[in-house]
């Protein structure tokens, strides 16, 4: 049997996995952002007719999967597995979505790296022959996350310059064993290590997560022997303005210059005038930007291949109060467009 692992951490899918369909839903603020036109559905307000923000998030997650399925005339029973995760305690939105789907479900948690964790695990399931079609989705909701992780939303607190804005958004993806028509394929993935560089400031996630992202990017290049020029775009999940600069510098220290084709979803999703300080964050950030902007660009042929590295800060309110530093993780996935 051929080995599907390259080097220390990289996974090479022998039967590349197709991303056959995808959909994204975002909140009103993200809808007003520079990528607003690409999303499938923009909520009118942060509740969207539900009783609580948690319920809104759950509906967002569910609806993005339904829309993704409907785009290809698929039904829920066509899915072999549903992989999902979110930021709420006990991944509430995902569990409650799975409750109404009736599809075998794998709940995953990687904080804001959940999307790529799901895409890689889903691809592994398909490449291993354990599934033919897998749904991957994740979501976050600004107000639901804010009140769980920080302060009540009506409290008059000043946000620091390093603070990031949790994206209200969700993205869903349908993965299939490589079919004839393969417009978008996942060729490689890399699962990251947990890195903690001693940052303890919970209002500065970008600085905490940058070393994890850098570690995964460097490891990928070392494992595969590729270099940054092989990609049209290297994009991190939600490092924001500050983490983006740090990540670029850390990668450069190891001899890889990514300054010419590197960006970050958290930087792209908002306009600097939207008062979000360091940029966007949350599971929904990479999930909605990939489905609402990156993949459509690839289908248009503007981007040929991208390396998406989603970063997650694995902290909890308890760990912050107990003065623990922030452990972080980053997973990467390589997606290729029409060749």
């Amino acid at each position: 049997m051929q080995n599907k692992k390259i080097g220390k951490q990289t996974i090479n899918f022998l039967n590349p996995i197709s991303v056959v369909s995808f959909a994204s839903i975002v909140g009103p603020k993200e809808g007003q952002g520079p990528l607003g036109t690409g999303f499938d559905y923009i909520l009118e307000n942060n509740l969207d007719g539900e009783k609580s923000w948690e319920k809104t998030e759950q509906k967002m997650l569910e609806h993005s999967l339904e829309i993704a399925l409907a785009k290809k005339n698929l039904l829920l029973q066509d899915l072999d597995y549903f992989l999902a995760g979110d930021l709420l305690n006990q991944i509430m939105s995902s569990n409650f979505t799975a409750r109404s789907l009736g599809v075998p479900y794998i709940g995953i948690y990687g904080a804001c790296s959940t999307l790529v964790e799901g895409l890689v695990l889903g691809s592994i399931l398909i490449d291993g022959g354990f599934a033919n079609r897998v749904g991957v989705a994740c979501s976050s909701h600004h107000d639901a996350a804010e009140r769980q992780l920080r302060f009540p939303t009506e409290l008059g607190v000043q946000r620091t310059m390093t603070a990031q804005w949790t994206v209200t958004g969700s993205g869903a993806y349908i993965l299939e064993a490589n079919s004839e028509k393969n417009d978008l394929i996942i060729t490689q993935g890399i699962l990251g290590k947990v890195i903690d560089m001693g940052q303890a400031n919970a209002t500065d996630m970008g600085s905490a997560m940058a070393p994890a992202a850098a570690d995964t990017i460097i490891r990928y290049f070392q494992d595969t022997g590729k270099n940054p020029k092989d990609f049209d775009l290297i994009i991190t999940g939600d490092l924001g303005n500050i983490g983006r600069v740090l990540c670029e510098e850390l990668v450069l220290q190891k001899g890889f210059d990514i300054s010419f084709n590197y960006s970050d979803c958290g930087v792209l999703i908002y306009d600097p005038g939207q008062d979000v300080h360091a940029g966007g964050s949350g599971c929904g950030c990479s999930a909605s930007v990939l489905a609402g902007y990156l993949l459509p660009q690839m289908l248009k042929g503007n981007l040929k291949n991208i390396f998406l590295v989603a970063t997650g800060a694995l902290l909890s309110p308890t760990s912050t109060q107990q003065g623990e530093t922030i452990p972080c993780i980053a997973h990467g996935v390589v997606i290729q467009g029409k060749s």
Binding site: M161, D204, S207, N241, I242, L250
Partner: peptide
């Protein structure tokens, strides 16, 4: 490094 790149 973080301190150097922190926004004012």
């Amino acid at each position: 490094i973080v301190q150097k790149s922190a926004p004012p």
